[in-house]
Every structure is written in structure tokens, then in C-alpha cells.
Amino acid sequence: MRTAFVPLGLLGSLAVLAACSSTPPAAPAPPVATSTAQQAVAVMASASGSRVSGKLTLAPMGDGVHISGEVGGLVPNTQSGFHVHEKGDCSAVDATSAGGHFNPATSAHGRAGTPIHHAGDMDNITSDAGGVARVNVHLRGVTLGGGAANDIAGRAVIVHAAPDDYHTQPTGNAGARVACGVIKVVQ
């Protein structure tokens, strides 16, 4: 077995050349936005002639915002689409003043937890025999307060008349907007 002899000077030169030809370091990642608010509420008022109403509490948690509360006046034992919409404006009778789904990354509509979906897409809520849906949702990838592009403070939560099918663009074929509430920071 033969051993190759390489002069030390040549090894140093090769190391310098390798360092010069390597790819430059990646640019630092943008800072991760964090929530500045501790809590917000969304008082859900009826829209489109419905009797749907309720109250939601929102709080930063882990990698997003946790939403809890109750929405009543729904058709018993059914599912309803549930989304954060882009504008905090519930003034239109049919809540269209709230705009489309909150979508700062301009993604296609989809189901929360899948790679492609709007930031405001959440799973359907389900009403019980009394027409009340108990909400317990974690919305990942958003913040509460601070003004970042993914901040949901000051936007609206909408309940729809029909379930979201998670496929139809751009809204999941969830039907009329039956309740709307603006996300207002309280702490």
C-alpha cells in the first residue's frame, strides 16, 4: 500500500481556495413577529338576517393565537365555516364589509394545518342540539397586536351558514356570513 505525500504548503493553499469557492452564508431570517397584546375579544353579532351571536376570547399561545368561547343561534347539529377576515368592519348587513379571508401571504384557500391555506382559515365549528358551538381553536402562524403582517388584532371573525369544504376557491363554499365580530384588544 502506497501513501501519498502532500506538502503542507499545498494543503494550506487548497484550504484557502475551498473557502473562497464556498457559497456565501445565507441571509439572516427576518425576525419572528411576536404578539404584543395579552388578550382580545370578538363580540359576534348577527349578520344576513340570522340570529347567530356569541363572544370569543383570543390570547397569544405558542406559535399563534388561541380562540375560545361560544357562538349560539346556529342550526342544531351542523357545521359552519369559521374564518378570520381581512377587515375589522362588520357594518354591512351581510358582513361583506369584512372583506375576504385574512391572507397576508396570498396563499390559496385550504384547511388549517395543511401546507397551503389562508392565515385566517380555521376548521369548521360544530353546533350541538341547542344550536351552540363551543369554540376551542388554535390559529397557528398569526400574532395578536404589534402590527406585523400576520397580526389579527383589529380584523374580523366570521361565522358562515354552511361548512367550509376546504377546497373551493377562494372561500370554501361556506355560504352566507351569519355572524361577524371585530377582534378588539382588551389587554
Rank of each mutant, 00 (worst) to 15 (best):
R134A: 06
E86H: 04
P115S: 13
T96N: 13
N124H: 06
Q169M: 05
A108T: 10
T143R: 08
G154Y: 07
P76E: 11
S97D: 08
A98K: 03
H167A: 14
G172P: 06
A15F: 14
V43P: 00
A119R: 13
A179T: 03
P28A: 15
D123M: 11
A105F: 08
A112W: 04
Q79P: 00
V84F: 11
E86C: 00
A33F: 10
A129I: 12
T114E: 15
P31V: 11
G113S: 10
A18G: 15
D128V: 09
T34S: 15
L11I: 14
G120Y: 08
K87L: 15
N136T: 00
P104Y: 09
D63Y: 04
M44H: 04
A112L: 07
A148Y: 04
A108N: 13
M1D: 11
G69Q: 04
G62K: 11
L11K: 13
V52M: 04
L74T: 08
A105H: 09
T143M: 05
R134F: 02
M44R: 05
Q38Y: 01
A153Q: 05
A156G: 05
V137D: 09
P30V: 10
E70K: 13
S50M: 10
F5L: 14
A19W: 12
T96H: 13
T34F: 06
M44S: 07
G113M: 09
N173P: 03
R51C: 00
A112C: 03
H117V: 08
S46I: 01
V84S: 07
S97E: 05
A148V: 06
A161G: 07
S50N: 12
G145P: 06
R111T: 02
Q79I: 02
P170R: 05
P170Y: 02
L144T: 05
K184N: 14
D63N: 15
F102W: 06
E70P: 00
V65Y: 01
S80V: 01
G12D: 08
G69S: 05
D151A: 08
M61H: 07
G12S: 13
S53N: 15
S21Q: 13
R177Y: 03
V186K: 03
V159A: 02
D123G: 14
H160F: 02
A179R: 03
V41W: 00
A162M: 12
N103W: 02
I152C: 09
G130K: 13
S127F: 09
T57D: 02
T3G: 07
M44D: 04
N77H: 07
C180H: 02
G146P: 06
E86L: 11
D94C: 08
A19R: 09
S21F: 12
L139W: 02
H85F: 07
A37R: 01
V32W: 01
A129D: 14
G110K: 06
L58A: 06
S50H: 10
A148L: 06
L139A: 15
G175M: 08
G64L: 07
P25F: 05
I116F: 03
N103P: 09
G72K: 15
G110T: 02
V93Q: 13
V93I: 07
Q79K: 15
A133D: 03
D121V: 03
G146L: 05
N136G: 09
S107H: 12
T114F: 08
G73I: 04
S107C: 02
V157P: 01
V186N: 08
G9P: 02
H101S: 13
V142Y: 06
G69C: 07
Q79M: 14
P170L: 05
S80Y: 00
A108C: 01
